[in-house]
Simulated scan of single mutants.
Amino acid sequence: MQYLVDGTNCLILDELTNHLDLPSREQFEDTLKQYPGTLIVASHDCYFRERVCHEEWQLKQGQLSFPKAQESINEKHRLLLETERQYVLGKLSTLPKDDPNYLELDKRFTELTREIQRLLV
């Protein structure tokens, strides 16, 4: 807590919630959320990370990854696929089944649906 009071601009914290009771932990989380500097936190406590951290980095087997950034990319990709699928569905609804473009659009609709489902798993 002294570092917070002293105005230190970067804190590196390792498994800081392990031995705190619930009221102490909640107060500590609230204090950290108000901290104006940079926090680098190593924690297995996902609830704590969700409440305090803005960005999450993971280090696994020597590889650094950014899971939330990847989730964001997947979400944008899913929304683009859903938009295209709605467009294809709109086109399909105006065509008779014997139209030469119908089978191609129906195939694309199925492909888009499978890709969207894959992203949701």
Rank of each mutant, 00 (worst) to 15 (best):
E50R: 14
V41Q: 05
E71Q: 15
L11E: 09
L11P: 10
Q86C: 04
I40Q: 10
S43G: 02
K68P: 00
P23A: 05
V88E: 00
P96K: 08
E55T: 15
T110S: 14
D30G: 01
E55G: 02
T38M: 09
D45R: 07
Q117A: 11
T8R: 06
V52R: 08
R51Y: 07
L120F: 02
D14H: 06
D45P: 14
T113Q: 11
N9D: 15
K91M: 06
H77I: 10
L95P: 00
L103E: 05
T83Q: 09
N74Q: 13
G62P: 06
S24C: 03
E56I: 11
L120H: 10
E50F: 06
L39S: 00
G7V: 01
Q117E: 09
V121I: 03
K107D: 08
E29G: 03
A69F: 12
R118D: 10
K68M: 01
R108G: 00
P36V: 06
E55H: 12
Y47R: 11
R114G: 12
L120T: 12
L103A: 05
S65F: 10
Q70N: 12
N101K: 15
A42H: 11
Y87A: 07
F66N: 13
E29R: 08
P100M: 02
D98A: 00
D21P: 11
R49M: 15
A42P: 03
V121T: 13
I116R: 07
F66G: 08
S72H: 08
L119G: 07
C53G: 03
C46Y: 15
K60P: 00
L120R: 14
G37L: 08
I73D: 01
T94R: 12
R78Q: 13
Q86Y: 10
M1F: 06
A69E: 15
E50W: 00
K91S: 00
S24G: 13
T8Q: 09
